[in-house]
């Protein structure tokens, strides 16, 4: 009943609902004013720096893999740092903000005020999802920018990148590849965030959200590692997460990144759909 009244209100020509832009700005301010968000972003800035120092100290004892590819190859650092963080740390950040967005507000009793405010429920879901996406975007941006800077200053290697295929990319194209990986990672995090929002809308305990999403990711990882269950792989969000190395191949294969992005978008639709359904019926 409340919902329909609210909807009628928004439909009236005399505007009683806040404009969307102001809502989004308020949500972003609200998210960024939480000290934990800021501390988290600060810690993310340390990840590429720590990797860079570790590689320099190891004195170019190269192993294989992405970390091995960073040695003497500074602009690979942001890609390696993003890939490493994508396994658990970035999802943790996104899940934390999604847990705060609905379950956290419910725990503090502030969700009731939001539900009573002259804002449509669907719009509320959109605003909350935007807040989560901003956190994902900022976290990835911090890692990428610090990664590029630390890669150039600490690891070195000039502006060129030696690809896994043995070709050399110029600075511009290398930065383009970093940007591609960053956008791809934001897409994967959006999927995690949408699922976390759906769980967040079901509970009023933020810890439940954190535990179930991170537990789910670990279970996905375990399922993906069992050879007998390889038919399950295409359904798992995590199965494409090692694919960022594709950005370092030449010519660039887009198949893997494209497929995992499509899969992530499907998870986004499912997560946001469930959140929207659940928020229609939620009282507080």
């Amino acid at each position: 009943m409340t919902a329909s009244l609210v909807e009628q209100d928004t439909a009236r020509p005399t505007r009683t609902a806040a404009p969307l832009g102001r809502l989004l700005a308020a949500e972003v301010r609200w998210v960024l004013r939480r000290p934990r968000t800021l501390v988290m972003l600060g810690l993310f800035a340390l990840i590429p720096i720590v990797i860079a120092i570790g590689i320099v100290i190891a004195d170019r004892q190269m192993g294989g893999g992405l970390i091995g590819a960073v040695a003497g190859n500074g602009l690979v650092l942001p890609i390696a740092a993003l890939t490493l963080s994508l396994t658990l740390l970035l999802p943790l950040a996104v899940t934390m903000s999604a847990a705060d967005a609905i379950a956290g507000e419910a725990a503090h009793g502030t969700l009731r005020g939001l539900l009573l405010a002259p804002v449509g429920r669907l719009r509320l879901v959109g605003v909350k999802a935007f807040g989560v996406l901003v956190v994902a975007f900022l976290a990835v941006l911090v890692i990428s920018v610090v990664g590029v800077v630390a890669g150039s200053l600490i690891v070195g290697g000039g502006g060129d990148v030696v690809t896994l295929s043995g070709t050399t990319l110029g600075m511009g194209e290398a930065l383009g590849r970093v940007a591609l990986v960053a956008v791809w990672v934001v897409g994967q995090l959006a999927a995690v965030g949408a699922v976390a929002l759906a769980i967040s809308s079901l509970t009023e305990h933020p810890l439940v959200v954190l535990a179930s999403v991170l537990g789910g990711l670990i279970v996905f990882g375990v399922l993906g590692a069992i050879p007998a269950l390889d038919w399950l792989q295409p359904w798992l969000l995590t199965s494409g997460w090692a694919g960022a190395a594709d950005a370092l191949r030449d010519p660039l294969p887009l198949g893997g990144l494209g497929e995992s992005t499509l899969r992530a978008l499907c998870y986004v639709a499912i997560g946001l759909g469930f959140t929207a359904i659940r928020m229609q019926r939620r009282d507080a």
Binding site: S4, W235, L272, G273
Partner: peptide
């Protein structure tokens, strides 16, 4: 209105599930 939004939510979730199947 609430029912419409619920339907949109169900629709989005279904589209996601079907899409996931198509990808998988």
């Amino acid at each position: 209105a609430g029912r419409t939004w619920s339907r949109i939510g169900v629709g989005a979730a279904l589209v996601g599930a079907v899409g996931l199947g198509l990808v998988a």
